[in-house]
Write a protein that binds this DNA or RNA. Structure first.
Ligand SMILES: [Mg+2]
Length: 310
DNA sequence: GCGACAG
DNA sequence: ATCTTGTCGC
């Protein structure tokens, strides 16, 4: 699913002489949470003459940003006949457009998440726990649709057994609660490239610690049918109390405060919360468990190398 | 007005 | 995540 292309398709529906907002485009995608991603998509708009991103403004009526300069955005709006006074759209309600033709792609993805969430297994369902892999994705600053995925397999003595990396395009922006749709394709690709099969995969992001119980670690686990653990650097949802994270009163994960800033561990798939915690603790040396930390360093260094050469 | 928003 | 074209709720 190329959500960037879906965004551009919606933005092209705004007629000359009308404006819409980041939030309205996000709603046409199916979720207001995508408003910031709409801004990101406008920022990297590959063809501003074809896709008039200058017609997308802030929902409070201010014009918002523009990579060619806000003055240029205002100039183009005025050329369309939109009046702008003190950086604010005049007659906002009259010129506002949100009558989009859309299939609400994010609503379909949410339905898929809910279906997948019912398939999450929270019992220890693995033969061995000898080879633990960590995976992470780093992004190019030159080309914002280019990413590097890296995977590092370690044994229980924290020796690196195998590492692989690859570069590929990413066609889905980061949207809170939809992270899997951004990173799953490239992560699937890197896992398939491994010569050895890890017993458990640790993912940079949440497992069941997600508003629909299906963070990226759980999502990968169910789709690939592998045991997974989620390790996040920030709290997406839930409440912390004495190191325990609950959503609506039921346990979803744990907070670890071993480092300056906490991490949040939650089971992904085919593992219990307690076992997930135990395995993460076994690999802690710095803030992040070693397999993920090494994958992060590898991915960053490779994408930095690409950026240097272009 | 300020912080929250996995990456 | 990178260095940035947001929105909502407290
Ligand atoms: Mg990451």
């Amino acid at each position: 699913m190329d959500l960037f292309e879906e965004i551009y398709r919606i933005v092209r529906q705004v007629p000359r002489g009308k404006i819409s907002t980041y939030g309205a485009v996000a709603r046409a995608l199916g979720d207001i949470r995508a408003s910031r991603a709409v801004g990101v998509a406008m920022n990297i708009n590959p063809d501003p003459e074809f896709t008039p991103c200058y017609r997308i403004v802030n929902s409070d009526g201010t014009v918002g940003g523009f990579s060619m300069g806000v003055d240029e955005k205002i100039r183009r709006l005025k050329e369309d006949g939109i009046e702008v006074v003190n950086g604010r759209i005049k007659n906002f309600e009259q010129v506002f457009f949100d009558d989009f033709f859309t299939r609400y792609p994010l609503k379909s993805l949410r339905e898929e998440q809910i279906r997948l969430s019912r398939r999450v297994v929270l019992d220890d369902s693995f033969e061995k726990d000898e080879l633990i892999a960590g995976v992470d994705v780093a992004y190019s600053r030159e080309n914002k649709r280019l990413a590097c995925a890296a995977c590092v397999i370690m044994d229980k003595n924290l020796n690196v057994v195998e590492q692989k990396w690859l570069i590929d395009d990413v066609n889905f922006p980061y949207i809170p609660t939809y992270l899997a749709y951004r990173e799953l394709p490239i992560i699937t690709e890197i896992i398939e490239k491994l010569e050895q099969k890890p017993d458990i995969l640790m993912v940079d992001g949440n497992g069941i610690l997600h508003p629909f119980g299906i963070g990226i670690a759980s999502h990968i686990g169910v789709v690939m049918d592998i045991p997974t653990v989620g390790v996040a650097k920030g709290l997406l949802c839930g409440e912390e109390k004495n190191g325990i994270i609950t959503i609506n009163g039921s346990l979803s994960g744990y907070a670890l405060h071993h480092s300056k800033k906490p991490i949040f561990v939650s089971p992904g798939h085919r593992i219990s919360a307690e076992t997930a915690l135990k395995i993460v603790k076994h690999f802690l040396r710095y803030r992040l468990p070693e397999p993920i930390r090494h994958a992060h360093i590898l991915a960053r260094s490779k994408i930095a190398e690409i950026d240097r050469r272009t």
